[in-house]
Design a protein around this nucleic acid. Sequence first.
DNA 1: AGAAAAATTTACCCTATGGTAAGAAAGCTA
DNA 2: TAGCTTTCTTACCATAGGGTAAATTTTTCT
Lengths: 191, 191
Amino acid sequence: MEDLINKIKTHLHLSSEAEEFIYSISKEKTLPKGEILIHQGQVVKKTFFVTAGCLRSYCIDKNGKEHTLLFAIKDWWISDYIAIHTDELATLTVECLTESKVIEFNAKELDKIHARFPEFESYQRHNLERHVVSLHKRILNQLQLTAPERYDLFLEQYPDIEQHTRNFHIASYLGITQQSLSRIRVEKVKK
Amino acid sequence: MEDLINKIKTHLHLSSEAEEFIYSISKEKTLPKGEILIHQGQVVKKTFFVTAGCLRSYCIDKNGKEHTLLFAIKDWWISDYIAIHTDELATLTVECLTESKVIEFNAKELDKIHARFPEFESYQRHNLERHVVSLHKRILNQLQLTAPERYDLFLEQYPDIEQHTRNFHIASYLGITQQSLSRIRVEKVKK
DNA sequence: AGAAAAATTTACCCTATGGTAAGAAAGCTA
DNA sequence: TAGCTTTCTTACCATAGGGTAAATTTTTCT
């Protein structure tokens, strides 16, 4: 819980009322590896702030193949924002890749923070702007880089994540098969 | 100019002061086809609201190939938000695909609207949330769909855009070559 | 309209990545 | 630690899409 409060405080003066509000609507949880927090096809009400461990969100396509949208480690948020903001059922699944600690919020309740404490508006706007930038970059990288280049970039961007993930998770993030990633890794070692 | 004001008014009560502010910091422009609004490698200061015509933003990779990030038609915003929000030089180029009308803003000045008229905060937050959702969907589509499927979806999402764009623009958005798109189009006609 | 430029199509072959399957390695559980 | 399960690697062949180039069509310019 401290982690979230501290993170906010680096960007914002947090009144004791606002801090109290955050406490009142959140629940800290420790989750085992493999736990599913959001199930594809179900209603999505929750959003999670990660304080330890590693989670990922992914969709399953018509052939049963998984495609990873996001890995979330300490200090990241994770949920199915497609579902939350379009009021549809989950297209994503969110699972714990390792034992993890999260702070759970009801997304609709959390949203009220902006009305009650307007100083959160611009904080949240900045978060969203940064997120948009990272998504723009990811799309451009997917368009212009080869699979080995994307893998190298991934390792730069998530330097410690291989402790937490299996290779097939990374492959499904990069848009290649597990076998291709395995070949790419072999080539890297040769050099 | 009316278009922008009207668009905002569908989401927000717009005070006459705020309307006045928007007028005071904006400039309406008619641009010929081929005009470049943002040049890769230069400082980005401006952002554009499109009221007529069609523009696109794209990057050029190390082999000289173009990759389209976004097409913008009536009522869309376009700029290089990577550059604006990271204070770096433009990685993108923004060009007019047809003669177009835009409302030009200095991005930093426009940003002040949130401090001066706080009601814009939540409006902008919602815009960003919707944009994030569309980017999440695009990434998932790129991961799970074949090129012909992505093309079909593109035609659904931008039903009238083929009037404005060349096929190689669309190919560079879908992440395929012009030649592949040509083959896909031939196959579609056969069915 | 006619010439020039640009875009599209088509054909050829090539390469990166996919699919399947089997064996090896690693990780988990009792 | 043994046995079971999952993941990773390797090998094979298959295929989607890429690269080059030339012919054709469309668009632009004067």
